[in-house]
């Protein structure tokens, strides 16, 4: 298991809870926004909250985005959480359309308004906030998002979750690249187990 995790601080929210959860799962953490240190990481975790938009465009086109790609292309383990997962894909329709890193194929889309679970039931709320079950593992994780990944390659999607009529990727894996739409750092024991399995290098 890697001893030290590099946590990317791209100013996309508070990193403390992610740092605490990784420590609890058994590794130490170095937090940095320095592209050189990111590029040198042996294991990279990129958490994110909030929105695709002005702040992520700077990242995608800037030195930090390039550094993340260096780590991924070198084959070292990478985990993107929430927006950190969404950024792996080609593009997002959030805030009028924005490019992603293009590491995985697909787009990030907004849940449609007025969606229901079954005909005649009340419209579902957006954002999708709270604990939802993830298949095929059957565990519950904590989600908080209005946008989901529409992956172009089904083989990249290992775990899925359903909200209304939309079944979306909860976890994507391709080689050394991992992403989760939920917040493992807020998902109690299920989340810590997930982080632990990422650290152990197994398929989460």
């Amino acid at each position: 298991m890697p001893r030290e995790i590099t946590l990317v601080d791209a100013n996309l929210g508070n990193l403390d809870s992610v740092e605490r959860a990784i420590i609890q799962a058994g590794a130490s953490v170095v937090t940095t926004s320095d592209p050189d240190r990111v590029a040198a990481a042996r294991t990279l975790v990129f958490p994110g909250q909030g929105a695709f938009g002005a702040s992520t465009n700077g990242l995608v086109n800037g030195a930090l985005g390039a550094a993340i790609k260096v780590v991924i292309e070198r084959g070292d383990p990478y985990l993107g959480i929430c927006v950190g997962m969404q950024l792996l894909f080609d593009e997002s329709e959030e805030n009028g359309g924005n490019p992603g890193l293009g590491v995985l194929k697909g787009s990030v889309r907004r849940f449609p308004d007025g969606m229901t679970s079954f005909p005649g039931t009340r419209p579902l709320k957006i954002p999708h906030v709270g604990w939802n079950d993830v298949q095929p593992v059957g565990e519950h994780f904590y989600f908080s998002h209005s946008y989901y990944v529409d992956a172009a390659e089904p083989s990249d999607v290992t775990w899925t979750t359903r909200y209304g009529t939309i079944e979306f990727p909860a976890v994507v894996v391709r080689g050394n690249v991992y992403g989760c739409q939920f917040h493992p750092e807020k998902s109690q024991w299920a989340g810590l187990r997930f982080l632990r399995s990422f650290l152990l290098g197994g398929r989460a």
Partner: peptide, 8 residues
Amino acid sequence: MLKRRIIP
């Protein structure tokens, strides 16, 4: 499905 939350 999304579950209803209990918040103490």
